[in-house]
Design a protein around this nucleic acid. Structure first.
Lengths: 204, 204
DNA sequence: TCCCTGTGTAAACGCTGTTCACAATCTAGG
DNA sequence: CCTAGATTGTGAACAGCGTTTACACAGGGA
């Protein structure tokens, strides 16, 4: 980390990585220009060679955080064990999709809040992995195996995303008391989404 | 507003009201101690006679904002026109409950973000009106008229709240593109919640 | 009347984001 | 190789923020 040359060579990326670490440890308010510069061992003004403003830097950190969220969802989905039928596998993977979302929020609340903190334009590049695209691919699989009615497909992502994001946000902000059983709540909301989408075979 | 006496007499409340106004106009980042003191026409340190810290003041402003949210829901519900049967009235009022939530978020995004900004303990006093209690009374009405299965009642508020809060949060943060039709999205999520809860008579 | 408690003030401290002139380094072209 | 220019990092300054401190003003009870 400690550089030996005058020119860092990878300062922009390291500032972003440091921002992610600060967000993970202390939440949105902890991701400050001066702290990041201190951690990297560089002058404060150096950041302004790579970002137009602190706000721009924070927005990029936030975008990276959303990317981490999508990766968490993909990891949880990938860890889902295959079953006999592709139908129950698709349903399990859809479940895992939402569980990965909530899991990311509760295990990294600071990073989750940073991912959705109020900062300018949220829409990410269309090519990079997003929670939306991961969710959509899971829904496509459900349609493919016949577990989700094709006519429901257009409105499905909004219904699923709002439910899981709402649960995550309220948990992170302790708006629902954190003493309660977490997995039970995730189960309740997951089954609610499945009923809302009319996903067949939810009896398991 | 401009006081004539040395002692203000109502400074605490006016600082809270000013905080609400600042939040409404500029969002969470605009609600600062110095700005509030400037607006009220008082010294900065005066605030510290009434609040332990800026964080405490902000937390109280946030609690007031959540109260405004609950009031918005109640207003929308109260404006719902009565119908022939109490059953359709209860369903309409339940719809209005969620619509009032989302409406508050999109018409006062700064205040909504302030209501749920990351600041310490969110749980409000049990006696004051909260979005949760308003929602619960609407659900009780649904059970009363037989539109909602009593066995669904315990998990109903979590399902309904997470959906509406998620939609509101994602709309406010522009995570779903704001160009789309707003009322259509609210409709989609509302119907999803009704299917999730198995509310009868959703064909209207 | 006097004093004491409660409330508002002014000034200072360290923190933040931002900008400036300047210095060190890397890179192209001769 | 060597120099000119572009790129990247530095240090100092500025204003704004939250917080604390010692002090000034007002009102109520002995």
């Amino acid at each position: 980390m400690a550089r030996n040359t005058y020119h860092h060579g990878d300062l922009r990326d390291e500032l972003l990585r440091t921002g992610i670490r600060l967000a993970t440890e202390g939440g949105p308010s902890a991701v400050s220009v001066r702290e990041a510069a201190r951690e990297v061992g560089v002058s404060v003004a150096a950041l302004y060679r790579h970002f137009a403003s602190a706000e721009q830097w924070r927005a990029d950190v936030s975008r990276l955080a959303r990317q981490r969220l999508a990766e968490s969802m993909m990891r949880t989905m990938a860890a889902t064990q295959g079953s006999r039928s592709p139908a129950v596998l698709a349903r399990r993977r859809f479940r895992a999709c939402g569980e990965g979302y909530v899991d990311f929020a509760v295990t990294s609340p600071g990073l989750f809040q940073t991912a959705f903190m109020p900062c300018g334009a949220l829409p990410s590049q269309p090519d990079e992995p997003s929670a939306w695209s991961v969710l959509c691919s899971a829904l496509d699989d459900l349609v493919e195996v016949g577990a989700l009615d094709r006519r429901m497909r257009p409105e499905a992502p909004l219904i699923a995303w709002t439910a899981m994001h709402g649960l995550s946000a309220l948990l992170v902000q302790r708006a629902v008391d954190p003493a309660g059983d977490l997995v039970a709540r995730v189960e309740v909301v997951s089954r609610g989404v499945e009923r809302a989408l009319g996903i067949s075979g939810t009896a398991t």
